Amino acid sequence: MPETSDLFIFWAVVAARFLIPLTIPSYPLPGIILSLVLDMVDQTLFQEFTNLPLVDYQEYDKALDIYYLAITYLSTLRNWSNFFAFEAGRFLFYYRLIGVAIFEITHLRLLLLIFSNVFEYFFIFYELVRLKWDPKVLTKDRLITATAFIWVFAKLPQEYWIHIAQMDTTDWIRANPSNVIVLIAWAALLIFLGWWLLRDLPPMRPGLIIAASYKHFPFYSLHARNIRDNYTSQRFFDDFLHYELIEKIVLVSLLSTIFAQILPEVRASSFQVAIGLSILIIINTELSQWFARRGTHWKSIIQEFIVMSVVNFGIVLAYDFLITRFDGSINLLDASFFILLLTLNVTLYDRYRRWQIWSQAEMDVFADQNKQIKAAD
Results as ranks from 00 to 15, higher is better:
P2T: 08
P2Q: 06
E3S: 14
S5V: 10
F10A: 03
T23N: 02
Y27H: 10
S35K: 02
V37Q: 07
D39H: 11
V41Y: 02
E48N: 15
F49A: 12
T50S: 06
N51T: 10
Y60I: 10
K62M: 13
A63E: 01
I66V: 15
Y68E: 03
A70M: 04
I71H: 05
T72Q: 03
Y73V: 02
L74G: 02
S75T: 07
W80F: 15
S81A: 15
F86Q: 05
E87R: 14
Y94K: 04
Y95R: 05
L97Y: 04
G99N: 05
G99K: 01
I105T: 15
T106I: 09
T106F: 12
T106K: 12
F119K: 01
Y121G: 01
F125W: 08
F125P: 00
Y126R: 10
L128W: 12
L128C: 15
P135S: 09
K136V: 14
K136S: 15
V137M: 03
T139H: 05
K140D: 15
D141G: 15
L143H: 08
T145V: 05
A146F: 01
A146Q: 06
T147F: 04
T147N: 09
I150E: 00
F153R: 04
P157G: 04
E159M: 09
H163D: 06
H163V: 02
I164W: 00
Q166S: 13
M167N: 12
M167K: 11
T170W: 08
R174D: 13
N179C: 07
V182R: 10
W186G: 01
A187F: 14
L190W: 02
I191T: 07
W195C: 12
L198R: 12
D200Q: 13
L201D: 07
P202H: 05
M204W: 07
M204E: 15
I210W: 03
A224S: 14
N226M: 14
R228L: 14
Q234A: 14
Q234E: 15
Q234C: 09
R235N: 12
R235D: 11
D239V: 14
I246A: 15
V250P: 01
L251D: 01
V252C: 09
L254V: 06
T257D: 06
I258G: 00
F259W: 08
I262W: 02
I262G: 01
P264G: 05
R267K: 15
S270L: 06
S270Y: 05
F271S: 12
V273A: 06
G276F: 04
E286K: 11
E286C: 10
E286L: 11
L287V: 06
A292F: 09
H297N: 12
W298H: 08
W298P: 02
S300A: 09
S300I: 04
I302S: 11
Q303K: 15
M308F: 11
N312M: 08
T324Y: 05
T324P: 08
A335P: 03
F337S: 08
F337A: 09
V346H: 07
T347S: 09
L348T: 07
Y349W: 09
I357L: 11
Q360W: 09
Q360I: 09
E362S: 14
V365K: 08
V365G: 02
Q369C: 07
N370V: 10
K371I: 04
